[in-house]
């Protein structure tokens, strides 16, 4: 995956020079270990700013919403699925985009890695399969496979589903992955236990809405929690208001979420916010055989009707 960057730069430079696009959206090197910052490049001389490594977990489809320019965007498997969703939902047009597809090996989980060390991490470098973590008086090599973001570890669509040019050959998809082990564990609980489980899950929430704002699906001009006429949800720290935000936001992503993990990565309080969306993802797969963002030609389950849609919940 490290070798991708030369190809990314080459393509970016070409499409900018040839005038195919007005800007390239990608990542530049961050100022902290395990952080890169989304950025745009408008002139071909600036493509040297672009980087690619295992710290590009932010979903770049989020930066395409309602843009008018012609844009080249660097897309991992999940980003590409969100680009498909964006196109289906008319948030951008296919012919505005030049998609630079990146077959992905997964992004690393910065919180998990930070929690493995007592001391502060000063530098993180990587080679093909290893992550080398350095700090004051220590240096340790971790297997990349052991420190992937949780969504990446169970990802079965690492290759872009839509692209104009690929930066490398496709990577092998993971097989025999149990994507919903954690969802089933909750499903087996009694109602009160479930309720308590989510109370604990959300107890640290400060309502910064980073999960929502990092999500490419959350592009409503006014989110329901920000609505004041009428005001649907209280704005304080009441746990019921906090839960209402999380579960309704998740519901708004039903049949659209690609499990890109941007929400969880963005959370400053390390809340596993995917716990909500994964249940919906599992149900969509089981009830409608649906995975979001896989094809431009199929309408999402919640805006179509099929005679065989399950309806045993209706009396």
């Amino acid at each position: 995956m490290l070798g991708y960057i030369d190809k990314i730069k080459e393509i970016s430079e070409r499409v900018l020079k040839e005038g195919t696009v007005e800007m390239v959206i990608g990542f530049q090197k961050g100022t902290l270990p395990m952080m890169n910052e989304p950025c745009f490049v408008k002139c071909s001389g600036d493509v040297q700013r672009l980087v690619w490594d295992s710290n590009c977990g932010i979903n770049l489809a989020n930066y395409l919403t309602d843009r008018k320019e012609k844009i080249a965007v660097i897309a991992k498997g999940c980003d590409s699925r969100n680009i498909v969703t964006h196109i289906i939902e008319n948030k951008i047009k296919r012919d505005q985009l030049f998609i630079i597809g990146v077959p992905c090996n997964g992004m690393i989980d910065k919180s998990k890695i930070a929690s493995m060390f007592e001391k502060e991490i000063i530098e993180v470098v990587e080679d093909q399969n290893n992550i080398i973590v350095k700090g004051e008086g220590f240096e340790e090599t971790l297997k990349k496979g052991d420190v992937l973001q949780e969504n990446c570890a169970i990802c079965i669509h690492r290759n872009p589903v839509i692209y104009d040019e690929l930066v490398s050959d496709m990577v092998e998809e993971q097989r025999d992955v149990d994507r919903y082990e954690d969802v089933r564990r909750i499903e087996e609980m009694e109602p009160d236990k479930k309720y308590g489980f989510f109370d604990d899950l959300l107890s640290a929430c400060i309502r910064c809405y980073a999960c929502r704002d990092a999500c490419p699906l959350c592009y409503c001009p006014t989110c329901f929690v920000d609505e004041s006429r009428p005001q649907w949800v209280g704005k304080g720290q009441d746990p019921v208001d906090i839960r209402t935000f999380h579960f309704l936001r998740a519901y708004h992503c039903a049949g659209r979420c690609t499990d890109c993990g941007a929400c969880e990565r963005a959370c400053p309080m390390e809340i596993k916010v995917r716990t909500f969306t994964k249940k919906l993802e599992k149900d969509c797969l089981e009830a409608y055989g649906w995975e979001a963002g896989m094809s431009l030609d199929e309408r999402p389950p919640l805006d179509t009707f099929r005679p065989d849609d399950p309806e045993d919940f209706i009396k």
Binding site: I186, P191, F247, Y251, A254, F276
Partner: peptide
């Protein structure tokens, strides 16, 4: 259906 399931999932009794 997704909504009912999600309500149940977070601890609202199915009934």
């Amino acid at each position: 259906m997704l909504f009912k399931n999600l309500m149940e999932h977070m601890g609202i009794e199915p009934d």
